[in-house]
Amino acid sequence: MTNKVASIAAVIPAAGRGRRMQSATPKQFLVVHGKTLLQHSVDAVLRDPRVEHVFIASDEQNEQAVAKSLPNISFVAGGVTRAESVLSGVLHAITQGYTHVVVHDAARPGLPAAVLSAVIDAALSGDNGAIVAMPVRDSLKRSEPDSDMISTSVSREHLWQAQTPQVFTAALLADAISEMGVEHPQLTDEASAMAYLGYHPRLVMGSLKNIKVTHPEDLELVTAILAPPGR
């Protein structure tokens, strides 16, 4: 595949509740600097002109969540699991003729444009696709079963922490998720599904700014990352 024949859409799964945020409002609809996290994430993936459309898989039809009136935004039905929501978005992208999909978390609003560009470039170089990831920096420990006692230390060599975006050929990703099953316990991200079919996605260096809002304190970090210049 080359850039000349590729047509790219983004898929943002946004049906989750984000219970670890301890908020009555789903985290993707929390507002930072006048926009929901979802809107910030949509804006981030549209910074690359190669991304022509964004499919938001959600069970929320919130008028304030994102500028739904824009022609390059579509809401599609979300699912019970992340994988089900992603598959819904990918199938809609395929129906509309897109060859590749950029899957990005709804609550990962600080994606730098250079990182997005790099992962798309890497994914378009072959069928394996590519994901954004960061090398593990901290010491890793494994606990005893059902205990907070350390069992052993784990080498961090060659270990990466996966982020999004994750970019793949749309048809291959749809087949991979369907084959693995949307409720498979090891289907934790799109790269997991591709690996299940024997593909080896490339790793593209991510950014500490590309944090996923999961816990309440993450919101403070994202607020600082997204602050307009001069604030």
Rank of each mutant, 00 (worst) to 15 (best):
K35S: 11
V31I: 08
Y98Q: 11
F75G: 06
A122Y: 06
S69L: 12
A10Y: 02
S143H: 13
P228C: 10
D146L: 15
I12P: 00
Q161V: 13
A67H: 04
H53T: 08
K27C: 03
L111I: 01
R17T: 01
G18R: 03
A191W: 06
L46A: 07
K4L: 12
A24V: 07
T164E: 10
V102P: 00
S69F: 06
S178R: 13
V119N: 11
V119Y: 08
S85K: 08
A93F: 05
T169W: 02
P13F: 00
L173C: 07
T164A: 07
G97Y: 02
K141W: 12
N3Y: 14
R137I: 15
Q22A: 13
G206D: 10
E84G: 05
P228R: 09
A93T: 07
V76Y: 01
V31S: 06
H53N: 15
Q166T: 10
G230C: 01
H200D: 11
L226H: 00
E190T: 03
V115C: 08
M194Q: 11
H40F: 04
I94V: 03
Q96E: 15
T169E: 09
P228F: 02
A15F: 03
Q28G: 02
E60D: 07
R20G: 06
L159S: 14
K209Q: 13
D127R: 12
L140I: 12
S74I: 04
A174K: 07
E60R: 01
R137A: 13
D148K: 14
P201E: 09
K4H: 15
V86K: 00
E183W: 03
A195I: 04
L38Q: 01
L37W: 04
A193M: 09
D146E: 10
P201Q: 15
L46P: 14
V80H: 13
A176G: 14
Q64L: 11
A65V: 00
R231L: 00
V80E: 09
W160T: 14
T169P: 07
Q39M: 04
D146P: 07
A93W: 06
H33T: 03
A122G: 07
P135R: 08
A77R: 01
T214G: 05
R20Q: 12
Q161K: 12
V204K: 07
A44M: 13
G97E: 05
H158C: 09
A170E: 05
T2M: 14
V11Y: 01
I120S: 05
S23M: 09
D59L: 00
G230D: 00
A44I: 11
A6T: 06
V213E: 05
L197R: 12
V103T: 15
L37A: 04
W160D: 12
R156D: 08
S74F: 00
R108V: 02
A195N: 09
T152F: 11
G126P: 10
M180D: 14
I150S: 14
V31K: 11
G97N: 04
M1K: 13
G198R: 13
T2F: 15
S41Y: 00
M205I: 10
R17S: 04
A9Q: 03
A83T: 08
